[in-house]
Design a binder for these strands. Structure first.
Lengths: 234, 234
DNA sequence: TTCATACTTCGATCGTAACCGAAGCATCGA
DNA sequence: TCGATGCTTCGGTTACGATCGAAGTATGAA
């Protein structure tokens, strides 16, 4: 009976609403202090502290002391990947947190998914990259083509540099709002950074949603066009 | 704050030890009755019944009435995939259920992972298929080559039939014991069925481990050889 | 030093959910 | 029709863990 890894432990860690809120907030990619996390969890600092030590002991979080602050972040992108996975699953089963506030549409349009672009725009970007032959989609997984390498290098992505890292270049990640894949992996991360660097978009303070400038949006849509007849997919 | 899918709900569902045990048992792929699941969960039938309704309401399980029995199974292979994912993660964080009984080595050697082969043998099989050029591994994902299609058809796999199903042919799945990928997807399932059909191996009653006959083991190892110098990977 | 801020630890309370005994319902075989 | 089996529902108990107030520790600023 007692076989294999214990899924109950991490299930329980993620299963508490306060902890889940904190983890979701940390999916934004930046490190947050205990006080900030207490806020997003809707609990006092003491309680948050207890939760955070549990999450750290469980290997989900890593902390970094900086002066009298303690910054918490997801332990590594394995954790991000896991949470994305669960989110994707939760979305397919209709487990939505029922407070669809005004930010919900913005979140569906474009948001950060740990370190890459997700939402309508994320899905569109991947679709377009596949349609243009920059990325080829196989049974399960994505691969950058030579043509794609040329194209992305021309817009300022250091593809050869990315290739030298351990992290996979292309990964697909199921988008919970669109229920279709968007691009993750080091390439996904680099593309989003590229948009930030160019001033096309910026993060929001208290949300995972990404705001495009009107100019940035125009350029983004021009760079990743959707072919006619492709609108009805999915 | 209240953004996106609720990971807490499924976290909580998986987070209870009794439920986690039942789900793990169902990873074996076959449907089990409420009574059997109560047994593996180490709880009474009443309690199990409550748990099972929660899991069903949460979309993790599906039940099928058959006479006065009620068979429970994972709702679909999305659930299996999710659980595998969490197991893989749990294994990397050292969350092992500490009762490494006598079955543990058998489990590491060969076990069923929802519907396909996992463990040392599962990893070996994929390695061998990649080495022989039957499957090509890309940044993230696997793809069956023409050569592979020929090879697998010759041992009795209906590849064209599998292609017609909705389910992806090749998927990689992180093996928690080996910490490397093995083959999932409809092809992974078909291969394991093939071994069963040929009498090379069989399932065990109360465990996810797979027992090879000595003849079956010999043939399996011959069919999926490991090239010299490849032993030290991983 | 002294005070303020950021956080942790302690101790106690409280709510929820896991749990089981008992009773109820459904299906099957005789 | 009757009893046996498989499972669910009900009711009450219990235990665990989330929660917070209060006190304690660490860092920085004055």
């Amino acid at each position: 009976m007692k076989e294999g890894p214990d899924i109950a432990q991490i299930g329980a860690l993620i299963g508490d609403p306060a902890r889940a809120n904190m983890l979701t907030a940390l999916m934004g990619g930046r490190a947050l202090t205990a006080t900030e996390l207490a806020e997003v969890g809707g609990i006092t600092l003491q309680t948050a502290s207890t939760h955070l030590s549990k999450l750290e002991a469980g290997g989900l979080l890593a902390q970094r002391k900086q002066g009298r602050h303690r910054y918490f972040a997801l332990a590594d992108d394995g954790v991000g990947k896991l949470l994305e996975n669960i989110m994707g699953f939760a979305a397919t089963r209709g487990h939505l947190r029922h407070r669809p506030g005004p930010k919900e549409p913005a979140l569906r349009k474009a948001r950060i998914c740990y370190d890459h672009l997700a939402g309508d725009y994320g899905v569109r970007m991947l679709d377009s990259l596949i349609a243009s032959g920059a990325i080829s989609a196989l049974d399960d997984g994505l691969s950058l083509t030579e043509r794609g390498e040329t194209q992305l290098t021309s817009i300022g992505i250091d593809v050869t540099g990315l290739r030298s890292t351990r992290r996979p270049l292309c990964r697909s990640c199921l988008d919970w709002s669109e229920r279709r894949a968007h691009l993750a992996g080091s390439l996904g991360k680099a593309l989003l950074s590229n948009f930030f660097d160019k001033g096309w978009a910026r993060r929001t303070e208290n949300s995972r949603s990404i705001l495009f400038t009107s100019e940035g949006e125009r350029r983004f849509l021009a760079l990743f066009p959707i072919e006619a007849g492709e609108m009805d997919r999915g």
